[in-house]
Every structure is written in structure tokens, then in C-alpha cells.
Nucleic acid binder design. Sequence first.
DNA 1: GTTAATGCAAACTTTTTGCACGGCC
DNA 2: GGCCGTGCAAAAAGTTTGCATTAAC
Lengths: 148, 148
Amino acid sequence: LKISASHSKEILSNHGLKATHQRIVILQALMETESHPNAEQIHDKIKKAFPSISLATVYKTLDSFVQNNLAEKVLTDTDHVRYDCKVHEHNHIYCTNTGEIIDYEDNELQILIKKHLQSKNIENLEIEKIKLVITGKKTDLKQSVFIK
Amino acid sequence: LKISASHSKEILSNHGLKATHQRIVILQALMETESHPNAEQIHDKIKKAFPSISLATVYKTLDSFVQNNLAEKVLTDTDHVRYDCKVHEHNHIYCTNTGEIIDYEDNELQILIKKHLQSKNIENLEIEKIKLVITGKKTDLKQSVFIK
DNA sequence: GTTAATGCAAACTTTTTGCACGGCC
DNA sequence: GGCCGTGCAAAAAGTTTGCATTAAC
């Protein structure tokens, strides 16, 4: 999802963040990268157009995005933290062939699971969100997973 | 789940791993720790009774457990790798208050989700396993989450 | 006896921190 | 102009590696 600098600026303001050049560019990069990048990948991507930007700033900025509900950390089975622009509750498919993390949106599924959990009535737990993690292999590597 | 040294030894052999003193003790520690520890926590726990054990060995051993399907890495939203004894497919509850990872087993749920995914017929994906991650807060911190 | 695992220390990778400087509101 | 964000470099945290020693089968 490509967004303009002014739109990025607007999103930052709406989330109570000062719209610095660095944050504008990092948010743009995060929103237009589908692959759930880590801090270093975002830094690499931005450096071409903005060579002075520091990796430490990317770390700090991504942290501030998470604090302000603009992004969330993605759980991986390696030890690396990756980021996902927070749009709405969605699930992830981990491809064990390629290491990709693919978004899987399925509102019906979300409702199905929540209904089930409600019926189970888990005591002493206030559920904030749920996420299904599907691990598998893309069988046709030349082609993206097609979500019906 | 407490297990004896001889039982631990047996499990290791059954998984094709040489039953060294270190591995026996690490497996015992992992099985009896409900909190999904990381390498350092396991090392700390073992050191009391086995002061010469090296942290590097704990890392190597946990890796070998994962390779041999005795354990699996747990995905956290921090950057730390934690471990879970591999028993069977199960879900996790992350408590945002305490940082705990609590197992949630619910076979009905597993079946429900799988049926749904089958009906959705996701193309080009061979599903290996699914795991639901529930994020929430334990409302009564003095008491453990009770799974009905 | 042979082969593989362990312990140590050093290296490496990823992330965080402190502080002086600069830019946004 | 005041305050917060940034860049730099150094430190910290977490994990891996190489190699000589030791233990399992």
C-alpha cells in the first residue's frame, strides 16, 4: 500500500506523533512493504533516498509506532523482530520454504473462533485479540498464495 | 510435568539423541517448567545442581531438541526465543500483564479451525500446523487461568 | 575405540543507550 | 524558543562458533 508523504504525515499526527521527516519516510516504507520487514530491512530500503538516516532512529521510531498503535511486532520462529502495520486483526501464514510471512484475512474465521472461545468461557481472562498462525509450505513457489 | 532421569533418558533415546547427563537434565528442566523458558532461564535453573554446565551447551541442546522434534521454539513479541516441550498441537495465551505464556489445549477448536480452512480451500499452500495465539490479561492475578 | 557432545572463550548479531546537536510545533 | 527526536558511537544482550577435552555407545 503506497501512501503519499502528506498522508503519512496525517496518520502520524492522528496518532499523536510529531511528523518528522524520518517518521514520515519510515511509515511510508512500512506501509508499502508487504513482507513484514525488520528494522534493518527498513533502514536499507530508506537509505537510498535518505542516506543520513540512522539505524538507531529506525529502531526508536518503530518502537514509537508500536507504542502508539500504528504498528505491531510480528512473532517469528527466529529471534528477529519484524513489523507489521497495524490495520486490523488478521492472521499470518508462515511459509517454511521461503521464510515469508503472509497476511491471511478471514473475517468469518475470526468470528467463528471468538464465538467458540466465548462458549468455552475461559475464566479470569480478558481476551484482547486473537491471531491464527498457520505454518505450511507454499507448493507453487513461482506463484503467490492465493487467498480465496 | 516432573519426570525421572531414567524416563528422560528413554525419551532422548527414542528421539535418536545420545543421552548425556546434560541433555537428561535439560529435558527434565524443560518438561517441568510450565512457563516456556528461554535458554538462560533453563541454564539458571540447572546450574544449582550442575554448576559446570555451560550456557552454550544449553543453547546447542535446545537446538538439538528442536531438530529432533522434542521441543519447539515459541514465538514471542519480544526478541527472545523461548521453548516449549513438543507434545502435540496446542494454542497459547499471552498475558500482557505478566508476560506469561499459558498453554491452551482445545481439540474442538483445532478441528473447527481446520474444517473452516479446508472449506476455504487456500490454494498453493500445504498446511502443516495451526496455532491460535490469544492475547489478553489475566483478570485475577492471584489465580491461574482456569481452562474449562 | 570411535564418534559425537561439552565447556570455554571469543566472535558475531541484534538491539539499546547516553548525549550533544538539530528540527518540529 | 522549548522540547522532543535524531545521529553517532559505544555498550549491552542474546546467540553462535571453533577447538581442545571428555563422555556416550
